[in-house]
Amino acid sequence: MNNRRSKFLAAPYALWAAGFILIPLGMIFYYGFTARKGGFTLDNITAIAEPGNMKALILSLILSLISTIICFILAYPLAWILANMKFGKGSFVIIIFILPMWMNFLLRTLAWQSLLEKNGVINTILSFFHLPALKIINTPYAIVLGMVYNFLPFMVLPIYNALEKIDDNIINAAKDLGANRMQTFSRIIFPLSIPGVISGITMVFVPALTTFVISDLLGGGKILLIGNIIEKEFTQDGNWNSGSGLSFVLMIFIIISMILTAKYDTSKEESAP
């Protein structure tokens, strides 16, 4: 009875998943393996090896990896501080922290554009103090900045959640047994926060890898990431087949990265006593 009812409750989501996840995925799969003039082909998949596409993919991987690392370095101490705050205070800071996320993602990125521009806000202030101008707009640095800014909360929140859940008694036990602060952190706290770190990494790395808005707005259209190439296939070239093929390849890369991180996750858990 109970089982049947829960199945019934899942029906709306099953419908949703079929209509907006499975069918679109099937369509991408279908287009990806179909030639423009019809018939099966692998050309859309192997197109990833073309120099332009390959370069964009590698650049995307590098930039999203850098952004993920920077996000992690910034987020972990922050999450640690927040988790150690007294309850009310910590959640207040969290709200402050996610407040910008209540604004539209596009608007926030556009704001960075006008901040970084040649005659933008930052350079106006710098020139007022006779300091040299900041010239990072339309370079990969600006794109990394945009990624870190936009995706940082997605790293902080899961790590904060994981750290907050750690029972104080476990930490006290470690101290009782003679572990110093460094050992407590590396042997107890960090391993226990790994699940949060993993989901943080996924939540930053995947959107960073597929973004095309950030690179378009902050890269001045001069830096093509794989997301830009796919977007152009659909909107400018009208080539759905090639766009789907490349999306498919990108999905494979995302799945690989998730498998890698998940593997790291379990092996850590096993080695932890």
Binding site: G52, N53, G221, K222, L224, I229, K232, Q236, D237
Partner: peptide, 9 residues
């Protein structure tokens, strides 16, 4: 399109 992609990338 292919040539333009070469320029852009």
């Amino acid at each position: 399109n292919a040539l333009w992609k070469e320029v852009k990338s």
